[in-house]
Design a protein around this nucleic acid. Structure first.
Lengths: 208, 208
DNA sequence: CCGGTTGGATGGCGTTACCATCCATCCGAG
DNA sequence: CTCGGATGGATGGTAACGCCATCCAACCGG
């Protein structure tokens, strides 16, 4: 198909598609002549993935580019892709040379050790959590292990469920998409349900 | 204290503080002369709140401004503040006049009804969830109620715990901060733990 | 043959969250 | 009393981001 059809079917403008190609998110079509290239279903599929990661996952184009690079490299295993995704998602907070920060980060590391979780030391989620600890303490709401228990339980159960759902006997493309969907899109599902549940709980506690 | 001390103690530049005052996030100091104003601990506290909402919650300044306006209005009840916060957080997705979208939105509404949740019909989280449904279907990963069950359970338990933790016998300021902290900051805590738990599950399933 | 499409390149735009400057005023140490 | 430095208030600039608009030469297809 031509780029205009790709544009129609994906719902993205031709300009945007060109932009994604320039940024390395989408491979070029196969050149048929100097002014014509042929695109196929894989391009459409790829655009749908990009769109989902941007629209729902709210990922920056640069992060998607990194993820795509791993997706397209067949030597990258599933767990490695997982790491790439987590790292690309960020957030990449500065780690100030500050005692409060170091204490919070140490608390996070201790928690991970205690739970026996196999998590890379450079995982951005560690920093995100530590960052939250610092902010909570600065606001006078110090966080305790008791506070965290329900979160840990919820996170564990959901994550187990998600990883169980990733089929690894399908073609690589399918498996990889499945993994990305589990991590990026279902994170939003969890967030949305969390917010809805909060509103319900708030209504029952404070509602008129 | 003067603005320079406020700047030092909050870690924000004088320019940024001026900017927040202009945007209505921070009340002016009480004018002592034409070129001097006095700030107090409440200003500092407010800056810490703003900083947490931006840094951790990643909220746009405009959203914080709306939240602050509710916080400062004593006639706004806690549940109402909750609604304001949810609405300010967004995301405000367009709702295309599209059968897929309408079907997804109807699925969400049915789910909320079935769970008996008291949630406003205009809650952005409904749209966020519906949006996710659409994207998942477009990618060929249709979502089922079975998939959702663990998420609903996790969200419910965490939300219950959070709302239980909001003390409503403290001064309004404290209670209100507590509510905001529960909704905005603990959402990030949940997300971070979710990611860590996923990495652990991935390591055990796919790791070398 | 000619209107319309494409690849490829380049420049512009709208938003967001500030930062930098400037000016007139003012404070306060000496 | 004076002068360096801080302040309030206003205005303009900036950097990143994710596109969109335009242009050109080449090309296709009716």
């Amino acid at each position: 198909m031509q780029i205009s059809e790709l544009s129609d079917r994906s719902g993205l403008t031709v300009q945007t598609i060109k932009f994604y190609i320039r940024e390395g998110l989408l491979p070029k079509g196969s050149a048929v002549s100097a002014t014509r290239s042929e695109y196929d279903e894989r391009h459409l599929e790829r655009l749908r993935l990009i769109n989902a990661l941007r629209d729902i996952g709210d990922l920056p184009v640069a992060a998607i580019q990194q993820i795509i690079a791993s997706v397209d490299d067949p030597s990258v295993g599933l767990h490695e892709l997982f790491g790439t995704t987590q790292y690309a998602i960020g957030p990449h907070v500065e780690r100030p040379d500050d005692p409060h920060w170091r204490a919070a980060r140490e608390d996070v590391d201790a928690l991970v050790r205690e739970l026996g979780w196999k998590v890379g030391g450079g995982a951005p989620a560690r920093d995100l959590l530590a960052h939250s600890f610092v902010a909570l303490r600065r606001l006078g709401f110090p966080i305790t292990l008791t506070d965290l228990r329900p979160y840990v339980r919820a996170a564990t159960e959901v994550a187990e469920h998600e990883l169980r759902r990733v089929s690894d006997d399908a073609p690589r493309t399918r498996t990889v998409h499945s993994l990305l969907v589990s991590t990026v899109l279902y994170e939003q599902v969890l967030t949305a349900l969390h917010r809805l549940a909060q509103e319900d709980a708030s209504a029952r506690r404070f509602g008129a």
